[in-house]
Write a protein that binds this DNA or RNA. Structure first.
Lengths: 359, 359
DNA sequence: GATAAATAGGAAATCGTTTCGCTATAAATA
DNA sequence: TATTTATAGCGAAACGATTTCCTATTTATC
């Protein structure tokens, strides 16, 4: 074991300054009036000994650790890490410390980690749920530990949350394509239907069509489970089918940037040009958008802001401030890059393009 | 303020079980022999009251918090977040908790955060330095706080570290290109010369050429400062110049995947095909490699392993275990995707390709 | 059966704070 | 001058564990 250095305690400072412990405490925490000369003596002693309060001892007494926990499925996913960056910045500014733990989409682990953090006497908890399962969150909420849920619609509005309007955002994407004159718009998603995010984006796609008086054609919605495994076969096959049936839409929206890029790949290999023949809009504005060919036009979620807002909300609750709105919905916007153009004049010509020998 | 629930203390357990506090402690921590019947009584009381030791109080007494700090320039960068994921997994397995803070490449902030963490009584510290500046690390090392430096060669071998052999890795990349028959190999980097990583990779490029008896031609090393800002003008201009001078090499290695992808973009717009005309090798194996067109062949750093190794090393030191090697160097390897092929037969033809009107 | 050795369990000190309540002094009032 | 009020500062009690001694009991030895 390592030997730890003994640091000066409040007792040492009191002795050095020739005052009582409680006086030192009052000075350090500015919690009581102390006459100027004694105050100066204390401060001088603090500086001389380089005294810093032992926050463990303080935590024991005050039951506050100025620490917040963050539970997240996987820190390595860009979306999460970018949101967390926003949290970290606010926490630092407000002099809180951030404890991180990952659950890898394991609900049991979520609950276990939650308890570990509670045992650490965190002042509050920021929760990215892997799934739409909030029983453990309710549990912690009922334990009177401040908690904020991120990026998930939790049914109970009493539980504070920060998210985007997924339905509206996808509607926005459809609107955007319509503004270019598109009337045949496909959708690529994955079947993860027990997740509200997935359901809502699809709902946004549908309501976007409706709003623009476009009949909904389920044939051009690509359901690609495999996309998370980087196996694009599903998308390829559906693109092929659409092509053969001469039913290729002039544009697609996608539930995520990765799906969109997979789609572009499939389209390109099938001989379509993006965006001249087919336009594509992604979702999330991840870094890959800039590196994609063509660069991907996408719906941006304000990730950093999301983290910052969540942290501010949480700390406001922790510190007992009045919060007017504990269910924050953040705005999204379209980031225009190079994957959207007006639909081709002659769409018949489009359908005549031949598939390569990839299939 | 939130009212906190009062949790049962060791005193409550002792009362419930009808034994002394010290007996409860002995049972809970298995630190002393206690007769079976009393042990059972204690355990029963623990279960009945759902007692969990207050780790703050324990920390105050034992001066150990089972907490490690991680200081990193920016959690949102994929490299860092993937390494951290490895750390987190090990920490969780070994029942430690992870405190995170970001410095955004600010040396003063590095030192400030370091002190904040020390004040938190972390048991150890994992440090990603933004720059080659180790004075504060030496300071903390001398305070007898276990510390491990990641991804940086710190001059003093007494300070534990985990990294890859950057020179060797880049040599590997050059070797790989040579094995395809390339003899004209360019390099793209940025001028960040006060960072050993950058210097060493360039050194690896040079020694790789030497090893393969290729004379070093400084004209085909692209120095592109702007790449971090996603401004590819530098690369474009140099590609243009190489093209006009008919000096385009048949292959490039790059200091990072982003640089490589920027390069590919410039090459494509200039009318070169990748990999048929020019091959490109990246560095890091980031997610973008898979989405790039063509998918990027690259040098892989074992990021997760790196984090895991660093955390294990740190915790071994914290726990006073004997460590045979406190300066760990991890292996790299080439991930083959689609951006490398044999050089074209007739390189003259290559130089005749015309630039588009991008320039 | 008397003494020595071994052992189980408990009392109390300690870790470093915060905070309640009390005392002694100074100021204000009668 | 005597009495009340205000105030600055201090002592001591928490907070909830761990750990060092010490005592009382049991077991072993002669």
């Amino acid at each position: 074991m390592w030997k730890k250095l003994k640091r000066p305690s409040i007792r040492d400072v009191a002795r050095e300054a020739g005052v009582s412990i409680s006086t030192v405490s009052s000075v350090v925490n500015k919690t009581k009036f102390v006459k100027e000369d004694r105050q100066k003596r204390v401060l001088k002693a603090v500086k001389k000994l380089n005294y810093k309060p032992n926050i463990i001892a303080r935590g024991l007494r005050t039951r506050s650790t100025r620490t917040v926990g963050v539970i997240v499925p996987d820190i390595a996913q860009p979306f999460f890490s970018q949101v967390i960056r926003g949290m970290e910045e606010v926490a630092r500014k407000r002099r809180y410390t951030l404890i991180l733990s990952c659950t890898f989409y394991d609900v049991a682990e979520e609950e276990r980690q939650m308890n570990v953090l509670v045992d650490q006497f965190i002042d509050g908890l920021l929760f990215f749920c892997g799934y739409d399962n909030y029983s453990h969150i309710k549990k912690i909420y009922n334990q009177n530990i401040p908690v904020v849920v991120i990026d998930r619609e939790v049914s109970d509005p009493k539980i504070p949350s920060v998210l985007i309007d997924n339905t509206g955002a996808m509607e926005q994407a459809v609107d955007y394509l319509c503004s270019y004159g598109h009337r045949e718009i496909g959708y690529v998603t994955f079947t993860f239907e027990n997740q509200a995010t997935v359901r809502n984006r699809y709902a946004g796609y549908c309501s976007g069509l409706k709003k623009n008086n476009i009949p909904h054609n389920p044939d051009i919605a690509i359901i690609d489970d495999a996309i998370r495994l980087n196996e694009l076969r599903g998308t390829y096959n559906i693109i092929k089918e659409l092509h053969e049936k001469r039913k290729m839409p002039t544009a697609f929206t996608a539930i995520a940037d990765a799906s969109a890029i997979g789609l572009i790949k499939a389209l390109k290999e099938a001989g379509y040009r993006v965006p001249q023949d087919v336009s594509v809009v992604g979702f999330n504005n991840e870094i890959v958008c800039e590196f994609s060919d063509p660069p991907l036009t996408t719906v941006k979620q304000p990730k950093k802001l999301m983290g910052a807002a969540a942290m501010n909300l949480l700390l406001d609750i922790v510190e007992g401030k009045k919060v007017k709105n504990k269910n924050i919905v953040l705005p999204t916007n379209i980031i225009e890059r190079g994957s959207v153009a007006a639909p081709p004049k002659n769409t018949k010509q489009l359908s005549q393009r031949g598939f390569g020998n990839e299939f």
